[in-house]
């Protein structure tokens, strides 16, 4: 089975081509703004390297966040455009799952962390099981202080994966049972690793269900002057 994976929910965008479990092409770039310029060009480059044509593809796996809204929408729009045109299945993979899946865990309890900006982070915890990891908690939005409290109350040794540097300089101080692991950003290879088996087992949603996982409502500021404004005729 030939699979293409796209991940662009963090500053690191990447694409990967998989033939079964083999990575036959991949490209990545760290750039917060250039997702749309990068993704299709990278797909074209990788397919060229693999000597495939788009029509050879059997499925698309795409990172749906949580993460940076603009980037993850570009990734999803690109993946949707591909899947719709080629008539092939599309499966969603969360950025937190992709992070945890690629970590070398040992026995530690894993906490996957993605920077959402404005002082907030998406986190979820995972525990190692034979052959992989299982998610313990639903993804949630926390501040660094909130995350510290959660980590301090975790009775296990913990492995932090994801954008730990974005949590700030002193974040790890006093967290004696915590260790920081790799990767820092989710990758298309990890997205393929999780999405591939689901496509192989025909465990795919309707494409309209492949949507961004924002975890936050849109930031809408409506001036109260506007909302409270009455028509001049109302009380005349």
């Amino acid at each position: 089975m030939k699979l293409v994976a796209i991940e662009s929910s963090t500053p690191a965008s990447s694409v990967a081509l998989m033939d079964g479990t083999d990575v036959v092409g991949s490209a990545s770039r760290i750039d917060r703004r250039g997702h749309s310029a990068f993704l299709t060009a990278a797909l074209d480059f990788c397919l060229d390297q693999a000597d495939w044509s788009p029509a050879d593809l059997d499925g698309v796996a795409v990172g749906i966040g949580p993460g940076l809204y603009t980037g993850l929408r570009v990734g999803i729009a690109t993946a949707q455009g591909l899947a719709a045109t080629l008539g092939i299945p599309i499966v969603p993979v969360t950025s937190l799952d992709a992070l945890a899946h690629r970590s070398k865990t040992g026995r530690r309890h894993i906490w996957a962390i993605v920077d959402l900006r404005r002082g907030e982070f998406a986190v979820a915890s995972y525990r190692p099981v034979p052959g992989g990891v299982v998610r313990d908690t639903m993804p949630e939005v926390v501040t660094p202080q909130g995350l510290r409290a959660m980590l301090l109350s975790d009775a296990d040794d913990v492995l932090l994966v994801g954008d730990v540097p974005a949590l700030g300089d002193g974040f790890l101080t006093g967290l004696h049972r915590a260790r920081v692991g790799r990767p820092r950003f989710p990758s298309a290879v990890a997205v393929a690793g999780l999405g591939g088996p689901r496509i192989a087992h025909d465990d795919v949603p309707h494409p309209d269900e492949v949507r961004p996982l924002y975890l936050r409502d849109p930031d809408v500021t409506v001036s109260s002057a506007l909302l409270e404004h009455k028509s001049p005729w109302e009380d005349a």
């Binding site: 749309s36 993704l39 299709t40 788009p54 929408r73």
Partner: peptide, 20 residues
């Protein structure tokens, strides 16, 4: 608007690429 523009542009470009 950047966010809206990127959706249609990325989707359309991917469709074009998929059919070359």
């Amino acid at each position: 608007l950047i966010g809206p523009l990127l959706v249609g542009f990325s989707f359309g470009k991917a469709m074009a690429w998929a059919r070359q």
